[in-house]
Amino acid sequence: MTDIATRLLGRIGRGYRVVGPFSLVLVALVLAAIFAPWLAPNDPNSQNLLGRLKPPGTEARGILYLLGSDELGRDLLSRIIYGARVSLSVALLSVVLSGVVGTTLGMAAGYLRGWTEAVIMRLADIFLSIPAILLAIITVAVLGPGFVNVILVLALTRWPRYARVAYGQTLSVANMPYVRLARAMGASWPRVLLRHILPNIIAAMAVIATLEFGLMVLFEAGLSFLGLGVQPPTPSWGATLSVGRNYVTSAWWIATFPGICLFLLVLSVNLIGDRLSEYLNPKSR
């Protein structure tokens, strides 16, 4: 028992050394998004044409640009902080919405079987056969860009992944003795799903949601980069990157700093998701 405990503590320690610093990065970005009005040194939409394209650390008309300014003289640091709020909000809401829809449909397909299973899983196959970013671009082009529409589009394109995982997990749990007993005692299928099946598959769904979170951040940035996401003047990392590509040689900081934040956020979420997957997988213990 002592050797097993020692090996387990060693694995936890190694995992923390890898994930720990990136967990702090994620916490810092989340706190920056929550307290953006108090942390941002300037109004993110305030223009100062005399201070346009100023490099980091310079000052113009009494405004200190710690990370430089953009083409309209707006403070890049303030726009990055407020952009974190947009990226995290879109990712969180789209993950929650797609997770609820996909998990519900997947559990229904795995438990009810028959025509319900055939309709839901074939519909999921159709959505999965289309590249997600292409489907998102087409849908946004039809519905129009905007904060709410981006969330709906991302949820629409990603629910099949939750549905397939929930479907497979439900098939393995539906034949357990306690599920058959609840069914024999007259429990309705919604009650069986909520009380007996969902608690047993929630861990797997949480891992999928964690990994999907980073992907939602990238999708939102990609749509904003193409002009189909959150619309100006609302700060967005993707929109800032789109502007920065026009000034790569003369104002490198416009694209560099939002790109670094985007990279750190996605990397942190993916590492945490991988560690969570290992922790919740009994075969890895």
Rank of each mutant, 00 (worst) to 15 (best):
I4M: 10
R7I: 13
F147G: 02
L67W: 12
Y82I: 07
G227T: 11
T104G: 13
R161K: 01
L280I: 05
R14Y: 05
G244L: 09
L154P: 02
V243P: 00
V27G: 02
L39E: 04
C261N: 00
I81F: 03
G20A: 11
Y178L: 07
Y247A: 12
E220D: 11
L50N: 15
I12Y: 10
D125C: 01
Y16A: 15
Y167A: 01
L280M: 13
V192N: 05
G168Q: 05
S236A: 15
V150Q: 06
G144K: 01
G99M: 10
Y178I: 10
V140G: 02
I260M: 10
S89V: 08
G229P: 03
S94P: 00
A118L: 08
I4T: 13
A209C: 10
L24K: 00
F213W: 14
E212N: 15
M107K: 05
P145E: 12
I197Y: 08
G273D: 02
G62E: 11
P21H: 08
A118P: 00
A209V: 11
L8Y: 11
G244K: 07
V148A: 14
A136D: 09
P199T: 11
G244W: 10
A36W: 04
L49G: 01
V101T: 13
G51C: 06
Y65K: 04
G51W: 07
M1A: 12
L154Q: 05
S268H: 04
P160R: 01
I80F: 08
V119W: 07
L72I: 03
M205P: 09
G144R: 02
P41W: 09
R180G: 01
V101M: 14
S78H: 09
A203R: 15
